[in-house]
Design a protein around this nucleic acid. Structure first.
Lengths: 104, 104
DNA sequence: TTGACATGCAACCATTTGGTTGCCTATTAT
DNA sequence: ATAATAGGCAACCAAATGGTTGCATGTCAA
């Protein structure tokens, strides 16, 4: 889980996921296209995305095709984000009330 | 948005959010309690969480109370995670088919 | 078979990050 | 008034991060 959060922390990596979302199954060079980064930099990002299981690759001859794996993102939504949506927590208006309570 | 992702990338910070989720409105020292970290380290994390608007603070005398703000997390769920859930993308079984298509 | 193309590997670099220690300031309780 | 308590500030440090360049390898096409 930590891997996924770490992988998502970088804007370049999120943009790579976006690109795959728009057009799944691209090669390294296709993914590099138009980016202000070396191919090697992109490779490093993809390695991290693969390690976090956010991207799966298939070798096809001399090409490496990259596919988005939405499962980990979905899991973060389910296991983590939902937790903070439930409960609604303290509405801002209620905070003041809690503050006053501290004086009693 | 990047601030939020960056803030969530660290496990210590996520655990601070967890603690606030379990018990909202804690002071710095309360939050430090039981953690294998200096108070100053915790302060730094809280600064980052505040900057990302994930935590709001209120001064109450010499105490600083920390409150969780679930809005940015909710936004990530809405604006980002949902995007990757929709579309279902390519099921693994379909990938092979795409691979073959490359040969045509 | 030989050159071009797609990718891999490794060393190196600057900056950011997560943490520390030491000291200072403000508020509260005795 | 004074000591204890809650927190803030700043310098410093090691390790991780995001990037580079240079070269090597595997695969395809002419």
């Amino acid at each position: 889980m930590d891997d996924v959060f770490k992988a998502l922390a970088d804007a370049s990596r999120r943009s790579l996921l976006d690109r795959l979302h728009a057009n799944n199954g691209q090669t390294l060079n296709e993914l590099c296209d138009g980016l202000a980064m070396t191919r090697q930099a992109v490779t490093k990002h993809l390695v991290i995305l693969e390690a976090a299981n956010l991207v799966t690759t298939f070798r096809h001859g001399r090409e490496k095709l990259h596919y988005l794996n939405p499962v980990p993102i979905h899991q973060i939504g389910e296991r983590w984000i939902k937790k903070f949506e439930r409960g609604k927590l303290t509405a801002l208006g209620e905070l003041k009330r809690q503050l006053e309570k501290r004086d009693e």
